[in-house]
Design a protein around this nucleic acid. Structure first.
Lengths: 193, 193
DNA sequence: GACAGTGTTGACCATACGGTCAAAACACTG
DNA sequence: CAGTGTTTTGACCGTATGGTCAACACTGTC
């Protein structure tokens, strides 16, 4: 067996993800990534192929470990309103506690979608669809078990909630304080009552 | 009197604004700007000082000629709900008819606020505050004249509507189609009913 | 027509960019 | 310890970046 890798690819990817997340693809330079990961240039290219390749892997990692994981944690068949309310709480808490105000990696990238490669656009869209589905599923459940009134349209409301989340993510990057973010949450709950 | 300028600074700024708007500050290179404006490098620097300086002027121009102008046009003391509804209509129409899907220059920049210079952040915040005020004013009016029920909280609802607009702008850049954007609008109206 | 004041031009600058690669370092096998 | 397959290293590459500037062009005044 030949020489083994001397650095933890997973940890390096984590560090790289943080930088991309905070500064965006174009705002991040290779030397930023080298500094953050502590890895030599050649090794990084050997491991990830290119800046684009590293970015794609960063998006995928964020999507599965941050976004999906959060939704999975909050999923609650017995208390759909609690799940939705909890998601907004989690987003607000994450937003105000992050000193870098990185926001959401997916949303940050989504707002630049027309300038992204097709592969990246695909992953972003799929993440957004999945988040919308989280709302749709819980609203449907709530209607079925009586927590949410029947006149609420699950499809439209889910889209509205997704838009509110995206908007919250935008405004949380330096425009709204915690109190204002909570006001957004209160309006989200109004949509499903 | 000396030589007069041989190019229309205002038109040059318009062209530059389009590029910044579509590609963002970091995604736009000086040669992009030279190509778009058709102006020589030295002249552009002579007129605007720097890339940053040009960007600030672009933001200010967009804010006064696009954002403010649209809100001013829709302002309607006698039909506050119509004004709000009309704003969403205008945003949706603008979004689906723009082949470049540029979205909103302010929102695009707002999502990158932590990486922006203080001057820019200041202008973005002020534009956002002003937009929130548009909603607040019309909701207040609606409550006064009976179009909007009394239990609606003007402050919170205004923030919610602003978040919905921001979210709509994000999703309109390649994720939602016109029908889905309309669903967002329907939820916006639900907030003030 | 000399002068002054402004505008224009494009060559030029240092640096930073993303990316490559030959050489060295290493762990294993026979 | 030679041989093999893999990883690490950092010097190097071509190009693009934002920005500067001396030379020149133009329009007015005296």
């Amino acid at each position: 067996m030949p020489w083994e890798k001397s650095f933890d690819m997973d940890e390096a990817l984590d560090r790289a993800t943080e930088v991309f997340w905070a500064k965006g693809y174009e705002g991040t330079s290779m030397s930023d990534l080298l500094k953050a990961t502590g890895i030599n240039k050649g090794s990084l290219y050997n491991a990830f192929g290119s800046k684009q390749g590293l970015f794609v892997k960063a998006i995928l990692k964020y999507d599965s470990q941050s976004r999906k994981a959060t939704l999975e944690r909050l999923r609650d068949q017995n208390n759909p309103i609690g799940a939705i309310s909890g998601l907004f709480d989690a987003l607000i808490e994450e937003s105000v506690s992050d000193p870098d105000k990185k926001g959401c990696f997916l949303v940050n990238t989504a707002l630049n979608l027309p300038n992204q490669e097709a592969v990246i656009a695909k992953h972003i869209k799929s993440g957004m669809n999945d988040s919308e589905k989280f709302f749709f599923d819980h609203i449907s459940l709530g209607k079925k078990n009586g927590d949410i009134p029947d006149h609420v349209d699950a499809r439209s409301s889910a889209k509205g909630l997704l838009a509110l989340v995206a908007g919250l993510r935008v405004l949380a990057r330096g425009i709204f304080d915690k109190k204002s973010l909570r006001a957004i949450k209160s309006q989200a709950l109004k949509i499903i009552e």
